[in-house]
Design a protein around this nucleic acid. Sequence first.
DNA 1: GTCTATAGGGGGATAGAC
DNA 2: GTCTATCCCCCTATAGAC
Lengths: 210, 210
Amino acid sequence: MATSKGKKQLDQSTEEKIKAAARKVFHQKGYAATRTRDIAEESGINLALISYYFKSKENLYEIITLETVFKFMHNLAVVFHDESSSFDEKIEQLADRYIDFISKEPDIPLFILTAMRNNPVKFGDKIPLKTIVLESIFYQQFQEKLQEGNHADISPLQYLLNLVSLIIFPFVAKPVFQNITGTKDSQFHKMMQERKKLIPIWIKSMYSKP
Amino acid sequence: MATSKGKKQLDQSTEEKIKAAARKVFHQKGYAATRTRDIAEESGINLALISYYFKSKENLYEIITLETVFKFMHNLAVVFHDESSSFDEKIEQLADRYIDFISKEPDIPLFILTAMRNNPVKFGDKIPLKTIVLESIFYQQFQEKLQEGNHADISPLQYLLNLVSLIIFPFVAKPVFQNITGTKDSQFHKMMQERKKLIPIWIKSMYSKP
DNA sequence: GTCTATAGGGGGATAGAC
DNA sequence: GTCTATCCCCCTATAGAC
């Protein structure tokens, strides 16, 4: 039952402590505003150990970013490649999983969006995003739906944008939204839960013939 | 015809040069990653003049941020308070104006979103966001629409979130989207232009009775 | 108002003891 | 593996000449 590192499961290894702290601080403040000293304090380890285990701040950041993007896209991959679910069920599952995921990790969307803008190429090379989307069962089912023809005009790319926008943007805009509307955290959370059911319905309406 | 500063209109004052450069660099890289030296180089002025005119980097950043948020919300205010247009026309105008605006200033949405997350209170106090939205003609017209009752259930807040999400998010997600789909800049621009017409239609469909 | 020169502090990284 | 002490560069801000 020991881990591969031969440590107890209860207390993390130093390496893992650093990564957990780095994840937290980088997600919250971004690369430039984060000091290695913040990570050291957050994790309770000694500053010098960051260099010992990860060589540089930049290297640590790259590791965290790659892992974060992977984790985020994992939900997508699981749903997109599920053989047992229908197209409509996949939409429901996407809304459900991502709204839960982002509710628990609210800093991740802005973190990824910023990381990708600052360095679009680097991460594009290392993460098989195209494969996940374009070679998925979801994409096949999408093509079949287009063949049926009993829908309003669908551009697959616009469809994808709409789906993702409706799911993710409210979380990114949360501070602005709460500022304008005076919505409290509990209300906001309730609204996001409602969107799990509403988004699939809305998406269907958008593409049904009039 | 002279400006209040008594300078020619053709070449900007030093103060304006600095602000223009600061705007550009802050929008692109954010506060922490921006060095005052970047702003000096970008504007072609001497580093010491930034302190002379604006005292500190932080103060300059605050000025830029406030102006940016004002400028962004101005489109909203103009459309929301227009007495001559109908509710549906306002939706069309919003999509139209914001898609044009963000196309020209693509860094602004992420800049504002990040600024508001890092300091939600400060800007909330200084910008009359609530007034712009909740005391607008748009909001009145919205209430009237609710009274009519010939629509699917509408939560005003969810409606607002959907509208804004569909307009803004594609621009924020542009790097990720292009990475996944291989879409080029020209294609992306064309898609956003199409959305000017599509978003009002989609929004209507979402809220029409089945 | 604009420049040069520099103060002063902070932050990433490492040497070397334990 | 972990710690203390410190190096050294870089960045903001300012003093002071022009």
